[in-house]
Design a protein around this nucleic acid. Sequence first.
DNA 1: TGGAGATAAAATGTCAACAATAACTAAAGA
DNA 2: TCTTTAGTTATTGTTGACATTTTATCTCCA
Lengths: 226, 226
Amino acid sequence: MDDKVLSKSSTLADEVFDQIRTAIVEGELAPGSKVNEPQLSKHYGISRGPLREAIRRLEGCKLVEIKPNVGAKVVSLNREQAIEIYEIREALEGVACRLAATRAGTEDCTRLRELLAHHEQQIQSDNGRRYFQKEGDLDFHYLIVQLSSNTRLFNLLCGELYHLQRLYRCQTSSEPLRPEQAFKEHHQIVDAIENHDGELAELLMKRHISRARETLVSQLNQIVMN
Amino acid sequence: MDDKVLSKSSTLADEVFDQIRTAIVEGELAPGSKVNEPQLSKHYGISRGPLREAIRRLEGCKLVEIKPNVGAKVVSLNREQAIEIYEIREALEGVACRLAATRAGTEDCTRLRELLAHHEQQIQSDNGRRYFQKEGDLDFHYLIVQLSSNTRLFNLLCGELYHLQRLYRCQTSSEPLRPEQAFKEHHQIVDAIENHDGELAELLMKRHISRARETLVSQLNQIVMN
DNA sequence: TGGAGATAAAATGTCAACAATAACTAAAGA
DNA sequence: TCTTTAGTTATTGTTGACATTTTATCTCCA
């Protein structure tokens, strides 16, 4: 009998890192809650050594904050920090879009079209809600960043910022923001990429994320009012 | 007698992290070289436990790469990766500049002016060389990112990308790139910030970094020719 | 009743030893 | 001479125990 279903050639610290990360991003570990080492090491059945290494990796992803002699806490993003992330995404995905427009081949554009078509199908059969709830929105952004062919940019966005975004959405249990409008903007962006118009693609993507940020801000303001 | 000159309320792993990071960035630990745990733990007089945590933090900063069961290696940036960093810097410092233009107060602009005046003085008394060799260039970019008031952006640039940039400069022992021209561009950028013209400030900064990237690329091409 | 201080419990930081894997060395065969 | 293979060495991965610090609890006193 094999050791496990799918665990080989990887270290304990890395495996537990993955598990804790998804636990954080999916809200299983509440934002702001303490990361208790003895408790977690017991839960995952490992020693504190590799666990601490995993926590240090989580710190690198900005998913936990460590205070010396006090311990790690799951990050809790406030309104300002969420906006900061949008500001960074706007810049990074803007350049990702520009690069994608210059570097994407015809087959890449086909994939983008197919992705959008698939999403459109889901929207029509679902009244437009599930698309953005089920991270279909991120799928689109994911693919564009991939097409930028900038590995570091990909790791930054897909390995760090998107996780934080998901954490925030889960934390505030926020509803999908303006799905129909966003979907139209996605189409415009693909148009620009297909035309290899890097400048326009960058502009559209920056505007796309900027609008999402503004929608979030106004939504947050509304919550404060209530 | 005190324990040490300046070491308290911090953990061993964090202290060693700082030491190794500077050792890497300053070229003391050669790019591509192996990070030997027994050797380093002996050198710094600590156990392998905290050392491994420090290495994991270094991995988070992208300064080392860890392979399971093999160990960590100091990153060695190739030409493509250096360009990737420039592409990211262009986007991030662009938005940093835009934010700085909208958020910087009069006293902040005064600080920028003083910094440039100080640099100008150094240039005149030094024939323009030391300014950019001694990271005076980074001082300028540092301050602007601070003025953006985006903490995450600051940590990203100043806590990660600038270190990688220094590593690459040290690795290729590259000379300062076009100091006089860059200095003029710095002045233009401050002008835009002082006028609270965010759009222009972003444009100028992006162009500034874009030119630096192009200079680097042509310089690298020249090396290939020889 | 409320707070200050002492005590106890728990958590974090650190270390040294053991296990498992990879890297190196040397011998044997073609 | 080169390649393969076995054995040895070194390094990484993991664990449990100990030290130190923080946090919680309890007592005492105003």
